[in-house]
Structure formats: C-alpha cells, structure tokens
Amino acid sequence: MCKECGCGIMDDSDKKAVEVFEDILKYNKFQARHNKEHFEEHKIYAINLMSAPGSGKTTLLEKTLDGLKDKYRIGVIEGDLETERDAERIRQKGIPVYQITTGSACHLDAALVHKAMHHLPLDQIEILFVENIGNLVCPSNYELGTHLNVTLLSVPEGEDKPEKYPLIFKVSDLVLITKIDLLPYFDFNLDKVKEDIKKINPKSHIIALSAKTGEGFEDWLNFIENKFNEYRQKLS
C-alpha cells in the first residue's frame, strides 16, 4: 500500500503495483450466499454430503430418505451418480431428485447447485440433500450455501484420513463414521479418530453408525430433525 496516503497504489516509474487482496474463490462465495437466500425463501434446510468414493454416501442417503420421508418433504440433488439408475431408485420413493452431470469435474460448486435447485419443486421441499462428488479434497474449497456440511468417513478407508485430508474435516459441521459393523475387521481406533477430528475441528459433531445394521442410525436421523427444527424456529 502507498505509504503517503494508503491509496493502494505504488508508483515505480511507469510501473504500477496495485494491491488488490481479492479472494480467489469470491465468485463461488457470492453464489453460495445467493443459494442460501433461495433456501431460506422456501424455508428449505439444505445438507451437503461429502466423502471419498465408496464410503457409502448413496446407501446412507437411501436409508436416510426411508427414515425421514414419511415425516418430511424431501428433495435430492445428486452430483455423485455414475448412472441415472440410482436417481431412479430415489425417484421411485416419490422423492424429487435432480441429477447434475458434471462430466469430469471433481467437486460441485455453488453455481451447479443453483442451476440444479431450479429444476426441483422448491415450494414442496423441507429438507434438501446434496450428494457431492466422491472426493476428499476439492469439495472442501467450495461452499454451496447449504446449512449443514457432512463428511462421511468409512471404517475401511482407514483411520489416517483426517490427518491426511484435514481440510474437508475442517469445513464439516458433522462427521459420520460409517460402516462401523466392519470395525472388528480393520485396524480402526474409533476413539483415536474422534480425537484426531476434534484437533482439526473442535466444533464438529461426530456420529458413528452403520447403515447396514442400523447401529447409530437413529442418532443421525435425530440430529437432522433437531437441526431442522432449530432452523425453522430461527426463521419464524
């Protein structure tokens, strides 16, 4: 910055250095804020599901829909599907779903979610799930405007993942440790993993569950319901 008046311009003969300090990801942040406004206008509580490929996002989502669909009106934005077949399974449950086809993209960004949400009947949705691309790195940089960021970490992935990929855990409000029915077969120290996550993000909640046996699943469903109720109270 210019020492004389603080104007941000330094004159060096014909060269001019302009201090800009622009956030490189600002466009996405603007868009994310805009998405949030849309959600709030329609009183939608939006949940972003993130994880590595194969950690059980789709299975978790299907079971979650089964657990909530009789009580709440739900919508789904799918970013992580290889085929339309999985989306069709969700549609058969009577749940509106829009599938984003990202081609080779490594993450969803706020603009993609914005486009997708306008393909859904927003007036008829109370809870919206956004299934992000299977990736533990890129999605952590892109806010979507969702209210709850959830990261899944499955037992077979290994207990070193929080330490290796801290950023995704840093941006998560909730970490779901999934496939805990497999704990007896893997060197996965649940307490250590919880401790590691706390060191990265002390504010993050952690729930351990198995979509297969149902263990811990109630905690997850209750967590969503509590958050949803808090959200609705705050809006009214």
Binding site: K15, V20, F21, E22, D23, L25, K199, N201
Partner: peptide, 28 residues
Amino acid sequence: WDITCPFCGSFNTKVVSGEEMFLKTLEL
C-alpha cells in the same frame, strides 16, 4: 492442520493465517 494450542493444549484457538487464497497484487 491441528488447531490445538501447543503451549496449553487448548482447543479454543483462532486461525490467524494459512487458509487464504488471495490475489495480492497486480503489477501494471
């Protein structure tokens, strides 16, 4: 990335830097 305080072990810390992605200056 471990935000605990190395001196007192507290979890109650604030990140001062290390997360930023900024365009700082342009020379024209």
